[in-house]
Design a binder for these strands. Sequence first.
DNA 1: GTCTAACCATACGGCAGCGTATGGAAGGGT
DNA 2: ACCCTTCCATACGCTGCCGTATGGTTAGAC
Lengths: 181, 181
Amino acid sequence: MNRLSAGDWAKAALEALAEGGPAAVAVEPIAVRLGTTKGSFYWHFRNRRALVEAALELWEQDTERMIAALDGVGDPALRMRTLLENAMADPVDSAISFRLISAADDPAIAEVVRRVSKRRLEFMQTALEEMGTPSDVARRRIVVGYGSYLGMAALRRIGASDEPLTDFIDQVMAEIALPPS
Amino acid sequence: MNRLSAGDWAKAALEALAEGGPAAVAVEPIAVRLGTTKGSFYWHFRNRRALVEAALELWEQDTERMIAALDGVGDPALRMRTLLENAMADPVDSAISFRLISAADDPAIAEVVRRVSKRRLEFMQTALEEMGTPSDVARRRIVVGYGSYLGMAALRRIGASDEPLTDFIDQVMAEIALPPS
DNA sequence: GTCTAACCATACGGCAGCGTATGGAAGGGT
DNA sequence: ACCCTTCCATACGCTGCCGTATGGTTAGAC
């Protein structure tokens, strides 16, 4: 047999979201993708909304894992650089982040993406403050820096910039006033 | 009476796009918004696609107007600062840009938004080069800088940053290595 | 005042996706 | 061997939007 779990559906939903945006998180198309039918879906989930929420939870956990892994790095500058390198090397998260933000008309999505974004911003701001940067300055640098992460993903998406994100690590590091490698 | 023109529809479509995203560019809802019915719409336009294209053209013209206005400014540093101030003061364009990029699954939208984005990037890169910045450095700074413009709009949208964009002008100026005001 | 072109309202058919109902298959416990 | 739980397929009705057809209304030319 080829039976599915709720997790399989959630994973597929997150992939569909990253590729096709919120409109692509549709039950029947994903069922086709999984080689099954709606019958399976409505066994595992109450409705479409529940599927979206499950996908969001998957995504939120990724952020928590990343932060947990980096929390052990004592040197804040190294912590930031590692974070940037990981983030820039993986084009999937920025794509999903972008998609989710544009899907923020849905209050459920908005709430999660806001929570995750704030978490990320605070994590980075803390690193800068540990390096002696005043709070308000750190805040501005991080907002602009994280903004450029999101925005560059957007530019790559439409083909306005075809350079790999990794080309910009030093530039972003400089922007938030960290020493280049 | 209260008769409408094709331009009224295009304007309303662009507003709907900025507020509700691509899915909101729907004939019947916009008709309600305009206090009319589909009958009006299909008199002025062949189909929904034509409406989207008209809205895109409106938006593209805004960019051309802005560039034309700034082309007269001889000093490239002042030109950039004026551009940033104008851009940051108007939250609508960044919202639309963001929406359009996330709607780039539609090839028609993708093409326009890519063309406009490239135009903007080139315009800014030229300013930096006029100030003596090497081409490749200018390119990186502009991509990151314009990226942060888009990304910060995203962050404001979800409420992860509630500061007005104007608070970040100096930070962005510094990021692309321009003298602060 | 009449005529005509421009403009709009309404009714209809079609499609895609949501959610429900219901029956069936597969496999482990006993 | 039987049953019961788990899981899935199919059929159906509903809604929202697209696009068409068709008839009505208004403004101005004359």
